[in-house]
């Protein structure tokens, strides 16, 4: 474990916590008998969260952590896997099933057909992988899928008029975690012999590059202290 990877995992954990906080806010808001002003805004505007991206991430974790009970690496590793699995599936459940949270989900805007991402990633994983075994192909599939999983969310943000802070921070942290992982891979490449994993590195690089324009608008909105807005 190195500082870049730890920072990356903590950033990823933070993104999940921000999303859970947002869902909690929506839940507690609507619970009130009289909607406070913030609640009113929250309930009126869509949450800006893409259910499609959340479903893709649940699939990413389900296919990446197949070895959670067969290969024990460390307590930290197992706990983090359980957190990511548990949070991603519960977030999908909340947005799909929770009587209050689902109201803040704007399915008319979140129209990205994520099936068009799943199939090519699966085909690519069947062709380009490090070992043609069930677990390895699904693990590779999870890397390719994670690289593009953010697309429905980024497209939804372009369609969302006012992106609220928590949603912006969520996407930022999700992009930053993989950027930190790239530093981790560089560090491990120079410190560990034979540490070469092109598939992981290229997928991680593509994933981070997809956030490039978001990062640009996110930092300029911070610098100019204006509301985050993505051009359509």
């Amino acid at each position: 474990m190195n500082i870049f990877r730890l920072a990356g995992d903590m950033t990823h954990l933070m993104s999940v916590l921000v999303l859970l906080l947002k869902i909690h806010t929506i839940k507690s808001c609507a619970g009130k008998s009289y909607p406070c002003s913030l609640c009113f805004i929250l309930l009126e505007s869509s949450s800006g969260i893409s259910l499609k991206t959340q479903e893709l991430y649940a699939l990413v974790f389900a296919t990446r952590y197949l070895d959670i009970f067969t290969d024990f690496i460390s307590v930290y590793n197992t706990i983090m896997k359980l957190i990511f699995l548990g949070s991603s599936f519960s977030i999908v459940w909340y947005i799909r099933r929770h009587k209050i949270v689902r109201r803040s989900y704007d399915k008319d805007q979140d129209t990205f057909r994520h099936f068009f991402l799943v199939l090519p990633c699966l085909l690519l994983a069947l062709i380009i992988n490090e070992k043609f075994t069930f677990k390895e192909v699904l693990w590779t599939f999870s890397l390719y899928l994670e690289a593009v999983a953010i697309l429905p969310q980024l497209i939804l943000l372009q369609r969302t008029r006012n992106i609220d802070n928590l949603t912006g921070q969520y996407v930022f942290l999700l992009g930053a975690y993989r950027a930190l992982y790239i530093l981790n891979w560089i560090y491990r490449y120079f410190t560990e012999p034979h540490y070469v994993h092109w598939i992981t590195w290229i997928s991680g690089l593509v994933q981070t590059l997809l956030y490039a324009d978001f990062f640009y608008y996110y930092f300029s909105s911070l610098k100019n202290n204006v509301k985050l807005k993505l051009p359509a």
Binding site: R5, D71, I73, N77, F84, E130, W139, N184, Y195
Partner: peptide, 10 residues
């Protein structure tokens, strides 16, 4: 082994 090392990341 090699396999083990590769999968130590989340």
């Amino acid at each position: 082994d090699e396999e083990q090392v590769m999968k130590d990341e989340l």
